[in-house]
Structures are given as C-alpha cells and as structure tokens.
Design a protein around this nucleic acid. Sequence first.
DNA 1: TTGCTTATTCAACAGATGTTGTTAATTTAC
DNA 2: GTAAATTAACAACATCTGTTGAATAAGCAA
Lengths: 188, 188
Amino acid sequence: MLPNPDEKLDPRVKRTRGLILASFESLLAEKNFKNISVQDVTDKAQINRATFYAHFQDKYVLLETFISKMFMQDIEKRTLNVCSYSSDNLRNLILAVCEFLGRLHTSCAQPHQQFESLVESTIKKQVFDLLSYWLRKSKVPTDIPATVAAWAIYGLASHYSHMKKRPILDKFVDEAFPLVAVNLEQFA
Amino acid sequence: MLPNPDEKLDPRVKRTRGLILASFESLLAEKNFKNISVQDVTDKAQINRATFYAHFQDKYVLLETFISKMFMQDIEKRTLNVCSYSSDNLRNLILAVCEFLGRLHTSCAQPHQQFESLVESTIKKQVFDLLSYWLRKSKVPTDIPATVAAWAIYGLASHYSHMKKRPILDKFVDEAFPLVAVNLEQFA
DNA sequence: TTGCTTATTCAACAGATGTTGTTAATTTAC
DNA sequence: GTAAATTAACAACATCTGTTGAATAAGCAA
C-alpha cells in the first residue's frame, strides 16, 4: 500500500504508462467506459496497440490502475500521517472517499453499470488495505472490522454522492463518522 | 419488483430465453465468466448468435438477468409474504442473501473480479428495491435507510460467505439482524 | 565509446463482437 | 380463414481483441 514503487523505473516505461493513463483520462471525459476501445486509447496516446498489452492486461485493469492512482492522490492530499489509526485519519479517509466520488462523477461521462461496479470494488479494496494497515499491530484478527468499515465508508460516501440535495460535506461526515469509528476503536 | 412479467410472453421468446439462460448456467459451472463468449452460449443453446443480441444487450446484461432470476428463487423460497415489512421477512431476506452467495460460490467456477463486482451490484439493487417496496407506505423519504440497509445486508452476507470457518448460518444471522433492523423499524 | 539489456514498433493472425438487411415464421385483426 | 403486421432467426460485414515473431531503438553499465 504505502511504499511507492514508481521511482526507479525505466524512463521509457514511465513515459508510456503516463501517455496511456493521460489518454484514458481524457477519453473518459468524452465517452462511456464501455465504448472506449484499446484502439482509442493507443491512438490518442500515440503508441502501438501491442505496447498497451505489454503494460496492462486489458482495459479493465487499466481502469483499476487509473482509479487507484486517482484515489491515492485524494488520500495523500488529506491524510498527512497514514501510518497508524487516529480519529483524525479516519475522518479524513471518509472525506477523501466522498471527494473522490464527487470528482469522478464530474470528470467522467457516464454512468454505466459495469464502470460503477469496478470503481466500487477497487476503492473498497484500497480502503480495506489502508484500514488493515492501520490495525496491523492489533493481536486479534482484524479482517472483520476492516471489512465492515470499508463497506460502511464506501456505502456512506456513495450515498452522499448520489443525494439530490447534498448537505455540507463536513456536516455529513460528522454524522457518518461515529457509525464507522465504533467498529475500529476497540482494535486500534 | 414483485409482479412477475413472464406470463404473457410470446412462447418463442420464452423458449429462446430459457435456452440461453440454461446454456449460460451450465457454462458458468465449467469456466470463468471472462472466458465465456457469446458464441459459447449460443452454440450450447443451439440458436444463432444474432438471436442472442435480440434478447440481451451483451453478456454482462445476461449475467445480471441470470443473477436476478437465481436470487429471486431464493427470495421466494424464503419469504412467504413479500408485500410488507416484518421482522420475519427481514430475517429471511438476510438468510436468502447468505444462501444465494453460498450457492453461487459452489455452482460457479471462479472467482473473477469483474464477475464478483457485477453480482454484488445486481444483488444490492434487488435488495434495495425490495426494501423500498416494504417501506413505500412510509411518509418520509426512505431511500436513505434502504440504501444503508442494502449495503449492510450484502456486506454481512458477503463477509459470511468468505469466512474460513463459518459459524452456523442461523447463529450468524441472529447477530447480524439487529444491526440492520434498527435502521428500518423506525420507518416500517 | 562499446556492447548488453530491455522497451517499443510493426505486420499479421485467429477469434470474438456487435450491427444490418433479409428471410421465414408467428400473431393479430378483419 | 386469409391478409397484414410483427418479430425471431439468419448470414454477412466491418470492427475490435489479444498474441506472436522479428526488426528497431532507447537506456545503461563498464
């Protein structure tokens, strides 16, 4: 989760992946995920189609990677110290998920069932990993509270981002926070 | 949700769809969803591939339909009276989701990310629809508690079905039930 | 620089996808 | 009971997919 493995990469690889991701991002703003072909991505990125497959298994894996990176930015903007559980960190995590979904819904021309499903499970996994990381020092098994909390956090955020009349984000999180915290604080 | 629209259907349509669904079911037992092509489905169903597209947009929609139908069977086996909320109905709903996931995991040769994602959102939508239906008489807006409850129910069931050492199902549901019920009883 | 390693390109392939225009069968209405 | 309207079934098409093998180019270490 935490260590960023990007640094010591062949500059050609960095360049190519960057081009692919950027191309994909701009295509998502134009059209449905379903209607984006690998061809489209490589055309806009100005690389060969075979090169794409050297870096990503298929367009679904590309989406996962893209979503993960995008979400990571939101996380890192919010949580200064990601190393261990704190009530502040949790609060910021919830905020980050809400913000991420908001950002996603403005910057993508969807919605599409498959797309939403993949985003959902990608984020839930990231949140789960982060929570597990926070709870790793605990002596009891932590997968149950981490699972429950990951579901709760995403569910709350997703609900927030679909509300017609959204309350102030901070106010919303004030209400949501204790529902999640109670599951975690006994382990952290 | 409740009314079953199958009855007054062209017998040709019923036959064709039945063949497709049956073929798909047996293919899921053999291999990964990702590796099942529309060709495979229509070959086994002994219909033309184009006919498939007259009935389903693509194989993802087929999966949704299949999952919905399968889940509906579990629902109807359990809940004798689906018309309105009762504590018994809710308990049976939770049981039905747990049983469904169990059945799915034994009868399908997976797991695969995409597959799980689509199952998840399909079931969550069905549960949400049923809960909304139960709460429809309420005067206050019910989408919030229905959303939260749908997430909670699926999260609990999914967690149960992934536990290495599963407790007795009824015992598990006894614990899970109040967590969900508290959200609903104030509206029902 | 020289050579070694590895990334990218290109052409070509078999197979899968989704669409379209036509034919044949089934319903419906008279 | 027959004619007209509907629609399932089909064949053929252009496109997309994922992979392979060989040629080229970019990075890197000595």
